[in-house]
Design a protein around this nucleic acid. Structure first.
Lengths: 224, 224
DNA sequence: CCAATTTTCGAGCGATCGCTCGAAAAATAG
DNA sequence: CTATTTTTCGAGCGATCGCTCGAAAATTGG
């Protein structure tokens, strides 16, 4: 379904390193990727425990084994670290959800199913990243917050287009609620926001995917 | 539908005052309610702008017109202020959602509709409170955090019971997804979490209520 | 092997945080 | 009006925050 190697911490941090090559002062990629991975992994772990603001850089330094000065070889401010992680998440969403195969895209019902399944599996593969982005998006400075809401609207637009396509092809009911695309979003988010609840109840990912797909399909049927 | 007078800041703060009478040092209720209302209203406004942690007590003091020392006549720590607001929200949810009229409760479909409609209207009446609770629940101390998750599970249980009742009465399909109650929750939350988005798009509350009700009903139908 | 470069380090700086407390101001009682 | 209680005040305390910077350690090139 999704290539696991593409979503390891190392792979994602390599992408971050490339994007922020100008602000990261460590020259050698071998050093940089390894250490950045430790920093980001630790930052995600601590932030998901008690929040990004409550995580001091001394906490991060102690837990990651990287000195205070060492941290600042990879970002010039705590906000930049926040931006690095958020940008990586939004870029992965944009990249992955836009890659629907041609034959899937041709069938609106399959396309909708594919979007739901892919989105949930993506958030599963990058669980700490998405949990972080969701929890901390509200506390972003204005500039970063706009980036986050734009990303959310893009995702919703992808779903809305697929639904509109189905209506145009007479595969979905013409009076399908225009709110449907907006309402699918929180259903997808619940999988990673309340991950521990679903784990505790023994709900597996395939069951969750099929349930959301079923809900979406029923919403596209003609009114009873 | 819901009595507006019951959810004014004054009424809610009077409830808070009663619950925390032992930690609030101001004796006269007339003084206390008026000033507590100013403090809480301001705290909600500032917190919903930039987060509870980012709101310093000096910010709160300046914006509310209450001095630093004056604030501590109403709470003994910043965490207590957090707890006051969150407790009030969860208590209102518990109180309101349990008050379904007998005739409504007798009909599973009507009961489900009533729960959805009432929950959304409650969050609308207490919008800043719910937005705050949603954003800041993660900052709960461990003991009160359990109370918050218990409250969430109680809400879900109320929905699950109504659905189970409908299945038992053969009004809902026997193979209705057991995840339905869990999935209705994020749909209700989206109304106040993304309130500005729906306001911008001109989605009114009645349309939103009917859309969620329709989604829920379709999910309870027999499989296609 | 040494010299040059790169990476790592952590004590210390100024700012701001939650919070306190003795005094001033206001309200109340006699 | 005076005496007493109640409420309000804000400068100041210790702690902790994000962040810096000169030196030590590690790596690399010749």
């Amino acid at each position: 379904m999704l290539d696991p190697d593409r979503f390891t911490s190392e792979a994602l941090c390599a992408s971050i390193l490339e994007r922020h090559r100008d602000t990261i002062v460590v020259k050698k990629p071998a050093f940089a990727v390894r250490k950045l991975t430790v920093i980001v992994d630790t930052a995600l772990e601590l932030s998901n425990q008690k929040g990004f603001q409550a995580m001091s850089l001394r906490d991060l330094s102690a837990a990651s084994g990287v000195s205070m000065g060492g941290l600042y070889a990879y970002f010039d401010s705590k906000t930049t670290l926040l931006k690095m992680i958020l940008t990586e998440v939004t870029e992965q969403v944009r990249s992955v959800l836009g890659q629907a195969p041609e034959d899937v895209r041709a069938d609106p019902a399959r396309h909708l199913d594919w979007l739901i399944e892919t989105h949930i599996h993506l958030t599963e593969a990058m669980l700490p990243w998405f949990a972080f982005a969701f929890m901390e998006a509200k506390n972003f400075p204005a500039a970063e917050r706009r980036m986050a809401t734009d990303s959310e609207e893009l995702t919703e637009t992808i779903f809305a287009d697929a639904i509109a396509d189905g209506i145009a092809q007479d595969r979905f009911s013409a009076d399908t609620s225009p709110l449907l695309a907006a309402l699918i979003k929180p259903l997808l988010q619940d999988w990673y926001v309340k991950r521990s609840k679903y784990r505790r109840r023994g709900v597996d990912i395939d069951t969750y995917v099929r349930t959301v797909q079923d809900l979406a399909h029923r919403a596209c049927l003609a009114a009873a």
